[in-house]
Amino acid sequence: MCSAEPRAARIELFRDVARQQLPRLYRIARRIVGDEAEDAVQDCLLKAYQHVDQLRERSAASAWLVRILVNCCRDRLRGRARSQEDVDLDAMEDFSLYRTIAYEDPFPYSDSLHLDFLAEFSVDDVRQVLLRLPELYRIPVVLVYMQGFLAREVAEMLDTPLGTVLARLHRGRKAFEQQMWRYATEHGLLREGAR
């Protein structure tokens, strides 16, 4: 689609892409803002419609919508006016889920200790763990590991240097592991036959 296309054609393209991408947008928003996902998607679609003239090609439309959604989610997170969580980077770097599970041995007599641990988590449990991550790490983790974007694409979406995104991905993985262990401890998932 070239820039000379009439607005009506762009709006029709937007409608097609929005219908197709709606479930994906909702999944991404659920993982970033939790219960505010529907509102974030609605904000995204409204902003996308208002800027439909920026939509140039069908092949880029999906990434364009995700970028708008990420910005809407970030706005919602900022709007919550929570203080920035302090993250102990040293403790996070030293934590190893693999070593902790092996040391704690929550499922004695198991030949597949780590798989048994992961099997205790439902989809909702994983979502709750994700929501515990600071926004700084949550957004890149969701986009790269759960939505399949390349780190450089995420860097462009967030208008952040690639090295910064890579560092946030590394720290985000470590923080996710740490939060998984905490969540499992708090919710009694570390007992054999807990579910």
Results as ranks from 00 to 15, higher is better:
C2T: 14
C2E: 13
C2S: 15
C2H: 12
S3P: 00
A4P: 02
A4V: 10
P6E: 09
R10G: 01
E12T: 11
E12G: 04
F14R: 03
V17P: 09
A18E: 04
Q21L: 10
L22F: 08
L22H: 11
L22N: 02
R30K: 13
V33Q: 04
V33L: 03
V33C: 10
D35A: 03
A40G: 00
D43Q: 01
K47P: 00
Y49I: 03
D53R: 07
R58W: 12
S59I: 12
W64K: 09
W64V: 07
L65V: 13
R67H: 01
I68V: 14
L69I: 03
V70W: 11
N71C: 00
C72H: 05
C73L: 07
R76C: 02
R82H: 10
S83R: 15
D86C: 08
L89W: 15
A91V: 08
D94W: 08
D94K: 15
L97W: 14
L97N: 12
R99Q: 14
Y103V: 06
P106E: 06
P108E: 03
P108R: 09
S112P: 00
L113D: 06
H114T: 01
H114W: 04
L115I: 09
L115Y: 11
D116A: 06
D125A: 08
Q128S: 07
L130S: 08
R138P: 07
V144W: 02
M146N: 10
Q147N: 09
G148S: 04
F149H: 12
F149D: 05
A151P: 14
V154Y: 09
M157H: 11
D159Q: 04
G163S: 11
G163T: 12
T164I: 09
V165G: 10
L166V: 11
A167W: 12
R168A: 00
R171F: 10
G172M: 08
F176A: 09
Q179L: 08
G188R: 05
L189T: 01
L189Q: 02
L189S: 01
L190A: 01
R191D: 00
E192N: 06
A194R: 13
